[in-house]
Amino acid sequence: MNIYHYILLTASIICFLASLRQLIQALNKKGDLDYAEPKGTANPAISYSFTNAMSPKKKETAFLHLPTYTAGILFHIGTFLCIFLLAVNFIGFNIPEKIGYVIVAIMAVSIISIIAIFIKRIVNAKSRVMSNADDYFSNFLIIGFQVISCLAILMDNLLPLLFIYASVMLLYIPLGKLKHTVYFFAARIQMGRFYGYRGVWPPKRNKI
């Protein structure tokens, strides 16, 4: 372990604890008790909320905006892959060269996707109206993270830069727009609870 490892480790712990606190607060039912007699149950609806309800077959924001939806899915896969790579690099595991090239290829698709979304946010009037500085910065932060992660596969000497960059990103996650990393899961769970309790989700076509 060198100084960069310690910096990354500290940032990871801070990010984890702050995010955990946010998640616990978000899912705490205290104050949100429902006294109405339930018509359905939450758990199947929560499962539905994370699966079919997210699919382009069901979700209008997906099927009406398929290119954006697809780019969004791809760059999120890329981001999670980068986090995995970060962990791999942290423990000092050497990625075999051939696998490295496959990862770089996947990352290239992801980076193109996120840059496309970034450009859309800048160019598209509707997206611009919705955005604040935090939105652009967060987007840019993830582009940088993916690009450096990708380059670090090819160039070992970039690892210190990756660790420092990732540390900054991890520290920013609980503060700005990137906290949706946590709140996305909380929102889907809350939505599943709501619609499940009321018997709306999962759909029961022709069954009453």
Partner: peptide, 16 residues
């Protein structure tokens, strides 16, 4: 409470 905090913090401003 939890539910309100969740939804206040979740929007990614996609506008879709």
């Amino acid at each position: 409470h939890g539910k309100l905090k969740t939804h206040l913090n979740s929007c990614v401003h996609c506008g879709l």
